[in-house]
Write a protein that binds this DNA or RNA. Structure first.
Lengths: 87, 87
DNA sequence: CGTGTAAGGAATTCTGACACG
DNA sequence: CGTGTAAGGAATTCTGACACG
């Protein structure tokens, strides 16, 4: 599910990360939550998986700017694969 | 997904119902959200579908106590089908 | 660089109640 | 019966900053 429906507290539980970490990864452009009208972040299940992946990569010594580069590649590759199916 | 991850504000948007309606359906034992440590309700995508179904039934003239009875039947039928796979 | 934390404010959600029909 | 609403409080989330290494 790519629907952005979870607030940061839920994501925190599902990933085991702290709010600080989650917000920082967003700041570094690694995840892109939506915002509620009031400004609170909304994440999808895909985001949850992504966040866990990011944390694993960082644990393995990568840096956020490196992850951003590889993720841009994956993103465009996926977009190419999936074609123009926009939701 | 039966994971209870959405707070009532998200459910409100996804179903088009008011918080009052959602809370009332819970009060009438038609949906069973979980609770966060702080007491806020957490719903699943299945709950969202269920809530929409409930509202349709009410619109068609059913009453909550009737829905509860039929839902208990469906629930036990499903449980029988799905066997003991507990999450 | 990636993360922790205290600070103050704003948005979110909660319950119990009164109202209508 | 099913839903609206105003009330007051508690939990949740937000941002910007200082800190460390």
């Amino acid at each position: 599910m790519s629907l952005k429906v979870m607030s940061i507290g839920t994501v925190k539980q599902l990933t085991g990360l702290t709010e600080r970490q989650i917000r920082y990864y967003e700041d570094r452009q690694l995840v892109f939550p939506e915002r509620s009208s009031g400004g609170s972040r909304k994440f999808s299940f895909e985001d949850v998986e992504l966040l866990k992946e990011i944390h694993r990569k960082l644990r393995d010594g990568f840096h956020t700017f490196e992850l951003r580069k590889s993720m841009v590649k994956e993103r465009s590759a996926r977009d190419r694969r999936e074609g123009g199916r926009r939701v």
